[in-house]
């Protein structure tokens, strides 16, 4: 995918008089395919840092450094420490939000959602947009498509910037498509701002073709390699045919010679390859369907980084290159 570049929290802090060491200009791509996501949390961090928290600057730096090192849980704990020490409710909410983000990156979705609950508890409505966003992303990561769609819709309603609404619409469409709701995916894009022609075309392409049937792959897998061929995995098919042929040939030869010990070993091995051919026939159909879905979702979500809602965090504008 194309990579956006822009100002991270360190650059923002530098502008605001902070003294973070610079460590490259790229926006972190830890949240794959969603550069804007990284951008928003860094924006919130920048807002938190630049809003006069001199006392909290050192712990925040530690948390950000831990984040940079990929120590998600440790970074989240540091943010939580700041939240508990925060005197202003909104500041505590931001720190909780950042902790939620770290937990989310660390695949601890339940904890992430708990932190979002706390952020909302201490600062109701102040973080409506980023909280909705994070909940949607957590739901996507947790493969809870209905919730993801709901939260993206919620984000769309709460957002007051067109590009954020477009992002939310794309997310809702992707969640619906993953939930096998093609009509819902189309509906999610209806009326959304921005150029969504490619996303709509991706949905049409996806809906216009049929999934491979795993049971057909399994039945074809009874002939070694044919299940893989059905799903377009020709190299795997060739390997399966060769392996099965070799071992069947070995069985025939050793059986003919009366070498029953070797025959038994080869038979067990052939059973392995043969059962693998059937399993592979089924699984390759699933893989094919998954790849097709992934490709459609990637197209729907797009590669265009969005601008964060600066009304929420009015510190600086982010600039991305395409």
């Amino acid at each position: 995918m194309k990579q956006g570049s822009g100002f991270g929290v360190r650059e923002a802090a530098g502008r605001a008089g902070g003294s973070f060491p610079r460590r490259g200009k790229k926006v972190s791509m830890a949240w794959k395919n969603q550069p804007v996501f990284s951008t928003v949390w860094k924006t919130i961090a920048a807002a938190a840092l630049a809003s006069g928290w001199a006392a909290a600057a050192e712990p925040a730096r530690l948390a950000l450094d831990l984040d940079a090192e990929g120590q998600r849980e440790a970074a989240a704990i540091e943010f939580r420490r700041l939240a508990l020490a925060g005197e202003q409710a909104e500041d505590a909410g931001r720190w909780f939000w950042l902790a939620a983000h770290e937990y989310s990156l660390g695949e601890k979705l339940e904890l992430s959602n708990q932190m979002l609950d706390r952020a909302e508890d201490v600062a109701p409505f102040a973080l409506a947009v980023p909280v909705a966003w994070m909940r949607a992303e957590n739901a996507m990561r947790g493969q809870d498509w209905a919730s993801a769609s709901f939260h993206f819709d919620s984000l769309r309603l709460k957002a007051d910037a067109d590009d954020l609404r477009e992002f939310a619409a794309r997310g809702a469409a992707a969640a619906n498509l993953r939930g096998e709701n093609v009509a819902g995916a189309r509906q999610a894009l209806a009326g959304a701002p921005g150029d969504l022609a490619e996303a709509r075309a991706a949905i049409d392409r996806y809906a216009g073709r049929r999934d491979k049937k795993p049971w057909v792959g399994g039945v074809l897998g009874l002939v070694p390699g044919l299940g893989y061929v059905y799903s377009g995995e020709y190299a795997n098919a060739a390997r399966s045919i060769i392996l099965n042929s070799l071992f069947i040939w070995g069985m025939v030869e050793t059986g003919g010679d009366g070498d029953w010990a070797v025959f038994s070993v080869l038979t067990f091995a052939e059973f392995t390859w043969y059962s693998g051919s059937i399993y592979g026939g089924i699984d390759s159909a699933h893989r094919h369907n998954q790849r097709r879905l992934d490709a459609a979702v990637d197209e729907i979500r797009g590669e265009k980084p969005l601008r964060p809602d600066l009304a929420q965090v009015p510190l600086f504008s982010l600039k991305f290159e395409f």
Partner: peptide, 9 residues
């Protein structure tokens, strides 16, 4: 067993 065989392939 078949899951492993599929992976080898």
């Amino acid at each position: 067993v078949p899951i492993m065989a599929d992976r080898f392939v």
